[in-house]
Write a protein that binds this DNA or RNA. Sequence first.
DNA 1: ATTCGATATGCATGGTTTTACACCTCGAAA
DNA 2: TTTCGAGGTGTAAAACCATGCATATCGAAT
Lengths: 130, 130
Amino acid sequence: MDKPPRQTKHELFLNYKIWLSGLTGNGRISDTTFELLAKIKELGSIKLAAQACDISYRKAWGDIEEAEKMLEYQLIDKQRGGKDGGHSQLTPSCIKLLEAYDALHQKFDDSVEAAFEDFRKAMLQKPSSE
Amino acid sequence: MDKPPRQTKHELFLNYKIWLSGLTGNGRISDTTFELLAKIKELGSIKLAAQACDISYRKAWGDIEEAEKMLEYQLIDKQRGGKDGGHSQLTPSCIKLLEAYDALHQKFDDSVEAAFEDFRKAMLQKPSSE
DNA sequence: ATTCGATATGCATGGTTTTACACCTCGAAA
DNA sequence: TTTCGAGGTGTAAAACCATGCATATCGAAT
């Protein structure tokens, strides 16, 4: 779920995690929730997406509920019943959010890349002596 | 301990956390650990630093041990005994690491600022309609 | 030699997060 | 109108993590 980290001399990596929260802080949309949303978009089902993300359906559902409460708009059109049991797809707003988040994430990656490169150089300048 | 988040339209905030890890991933140096190190540098004591950081001494000590194992070099010169009980100070390597990390963090903060601004704009472009 | 307080460490406890499981709801298609 | 499988929900169990506490170790200063 976390980005693959980058290496320095001593097998050191930089990791990061980002998430969105509401004003009160008692709700969050994490990286994993966005991955879940992406999978729902791809697979058309919360259940399948949860499996693909290797989390329980219970957690997936809870995360979505939490996110929707926080944003105060629907992220997913949920269809229940039918021979196939039902299916789900992202709302237009959710797709927009997802795209904006992906772009944000990409910029984060680039920033980390650049910042960590400088860090690595600083660490190599005067190698540890003890 | 986490950075103060930034706002969007729907009272939405961006949060993030960065940390260093080893190759195997079973060790980490978090933001809080760096804050602890900074406090140790300032106060000359793990105990006082833990108090200042509002974490238990137990955790502080565990975090340091974990970090030193990961990096495979001493971060702290620990002095036990004496009338005062003992004291601690950062090794030169640790000070260097701390400085590099501070610079890294600063660059990261700046980048995040810019990235989130773009995110906010993207979200405002076509306001949600459902 | 005694003392004192910080370093050092194991383990029980408690709180939070996630999973596991049970069970109900829905509705298009057969 | 019966069926089927995903959506939806409560709750107990398990997994995790940090704290609290107890207790030992160390050694300069007295």
